[in-house]
Computed example of a mutant assay.
Amino acid sequence: MAAKDQIDGLNFQQRHGKERVRVGRVWRHGKEGPHFFVEWNVSITLLSDCIPAYVHADNSDIVATDTMKNTVYVKAKECSEKVSVEQFAIILAKHFTSFYQQVTTAIIKIVEKPWERVSIDGQPHDHGFKLGSERHTTEVFVKKNGALGVTSGVEGLALLKTTKSGFEGFIRDQNTILPETRERMLATEVSASWRYHFDSLSSVSMDPFTETYLDVKKVLVNTFFGPPKEGVYSPSVQATLYYMAKAVLGRFPDISSIQLKMPNIHFLPVNLSSKDNPVIVKFEDDVYLPTDEPHGSIEASLGRIHSKM
């Protein structure tokens, strides 16, 4: 997405913004209550009518990127109550499109660092946090006419199960050495993004995003693993990906589409032998060589009919 114009008989597209604006925000629940903490990495892109800056060296319509950076901190300060990363992105985007006449669209991308509250002796700590693993992401665009698009996601969601996975019936040719199996390790690092059906600022009457993010993540994880005792069989990463995507759409009517990327991170069976000892280590689904390069790359998207992917 970029502002597109014709200049001197040529197509010209431009956009500008500020990348990697890092902000931490603490909210205190009363004098004696628990603290809440987030750390966000914010990227701002503005589509604006500022052609003179490029063709006439006239900067009078430019929103300085330093101003964009400062606006992140100002708006974080103005959020006196805890807000989700999606809601903060909407607040920023709405500000840029409403405050500046020449800005037609604002695109805000934010990655939330996974700080989690610690527990001491089984009790949640009021102001203690530790760094987790997977990251909460969002991308929001707001147009001057109030049109809205919200995409949320998770990155770095590492999942592994030691059984209930196989891979059979694939194409075999002269270059195929991979054996078929109904018993293997399955490991991946899920990147997921889902698009909400909200299409205008007026259609978001509250802040449902944090709860939905946690629930979507739970559905993805539960579908991958299955019940705690018996699990669920995975005939391929492709099939498991589809089950996960379909489960999300079936559970959340506010989500119109979801995209999943699930690399197949390999744990290779270890067999060791020598001339004198043919069985130093015999693989029996127990000893593996972990490796992440090269790995299989599997991704797909699933959306409701008439939804925008």
Rank of each mutant, 00 (worst) to 15 (best):
M1I: 12
Q6P: 04
K18I: 00
R20Q: 04
R22F: 03
R25D: 01
R28P: 07
E32L: 13
E32R: 02
E39C: 12
E39Q: 14
W40A: 08
S43W: 06
I44R: 00
L47F: 11
L47K: 02
L47T: 03
C50M: 05
I51E: 14
A53K: 07
V55P: 03
D58P: 12
N59F: 03
N59L: 07
S60N: 08
V63L: 04
D66H: 00
T67E: 08
M68C: 02
T71S: 06
V83R: 12
V83K: 10
A93I: 00
A93V: 00
F96Y: 03
Y100C: 01
V103K: 00
K109S: 14
I110D: 01
K113W: 01
E116Q: 10
R117Y: 02
S119M: 13
H125C: 13
H127D: 13
H127G: 15
G128H: 03
K130Y: 08
G132E: 10
G132S: 07
T137L: 15
E139G: 04
E139L: 10
A147S: 15
G149K: 14
G153C: 06
E155K: 15
L160Q: 05
L160G: 00
T163E: 07
K164A: 02
S165A: 14
G166N: 06
D173G: 12
P179E: 10
T181W: 03
R184F: 06
M185G: 12
V190T: 14
S193H: 15
S193F: 10
R195F: 11
Y196V: 09
F198G: 04
F198C: 02
D199H: 10
L201P: 02
V204L: 11
S205K: 13
D207C: 08
P208H: 07
F209N: 03
L214N: 09
V216C: 02
V219K: 01
N222T: 09
G226T: 09
P227T: 14
P228F: 09
P228Q: 14
K229D: 09
K229I: 05
G231A: 09
Y233E: 03
S234W: 02
S236W: 12
S236I: 10
A239L: 06
T240L: 12
L241M: 15
Y242I: 03
Y242D: 07
V248K: 09
V248M: 01
F252K: 09
F252W: 09
L260Q: 09
K261S: 15
M262E: 12
P263M: 15
P263D: 12
P263Y: 04
N264G: 06
I265M: 09
F267A: 08
D276M: 08
D276Q: 11
V279T: 10
V279Q: 15
K282A: 13
F283S: 08
F283W: 13
L289Q: 12
L289Y: 02
P290L: 11
T291W: 04
E293V: 15
L302W: 12
L302P: 10
G303T: 04
H306E: 12
H306Q: 13
K308L: 15
